[in-house]
């Protein structure tokens, strides 16, 4: 996977900020995407388009708060293809995997900047910052979790394998 970075330095970017409860009247991804991140950055969607950004980098404890799965759904529908942060709240972490949105714990948060182009090789466990020409090792997910992500989420994974 290759893409441009949009970075938010804030720690504790919570699920109420990603998608406030006032918009939880639906699980329609497009509607959620329209309001995604708007309390933190009203120009979020425009910036993504302008910069062609698909990889979101955030501060520690990303996705803390409510268990609402609409948070990763909104980000994914906004065009985010991967989320990188030093740490994630555990429910958000699971939710991302379960909807097929790759997520990476990455301690060298300062090494990534808005507009950097980065390339991620999930099976090898390598993150390559093409803009700074630096390579980093990242944690490889256990195979069955990789399979869930590749199936575009747990429901599809379960349909294929188990149900």
């Amino acid at each position: 996977m290759k893409g441009n970075v949009i970075k938010y330095d804030e720690k504790n970017i919570n699920t109420d900020l990603i998608i406030p409860a006032r918009y939880l009247i639906t699980s329609d991804p497009d509607y959620l995407a329209e309001h995604c991140m708007e309390d933190l950055d009203p120009d979020f969607n425009e910036k993504l388009k302008e910069m062609g950004a698909t990889i979101m980098v955030g501060g520690m404890n990303f996705g803390c708060g409510s268990s609402r799965e609409q948070a990763p759904i909104a980000l994914k529908a906004s065009g985010i293809k991967c989320i990188i942060a030093p740490s994630f709240a555990r429910i958000f972490f699971r939710n991302c995997i379960n909807i097929g949105l790759p997520i990476i714990e990455f301690k060298d948060f300062d090494e990534l900047h808005t507009s950097d182009e980065i390339e991620i090789e999930f099976t090898e466990g390598i993150l390559n910052n093409c803009s700074t020409k630096q390579k980093y090792k990242i944690m490889r997910m256990p195979p069955f979790i990789q399979e869930i992500i590749q199936s575009n989420g747990l429901v599809n994974f379960a349909r294929k394998r188990i149900l």
Binding site: I91, N95, L154
Partner: peptide
């Protein structure tokens, strides 16, 4: 006891 999102919940309901 711990919380989950809706997809985990679905899986738990079935399995």
């Amino acid at each position: 006891s711990c919380g989950l999102g809706n997809t985990d919940l679905f899986y738990s309901y079935v399995k």
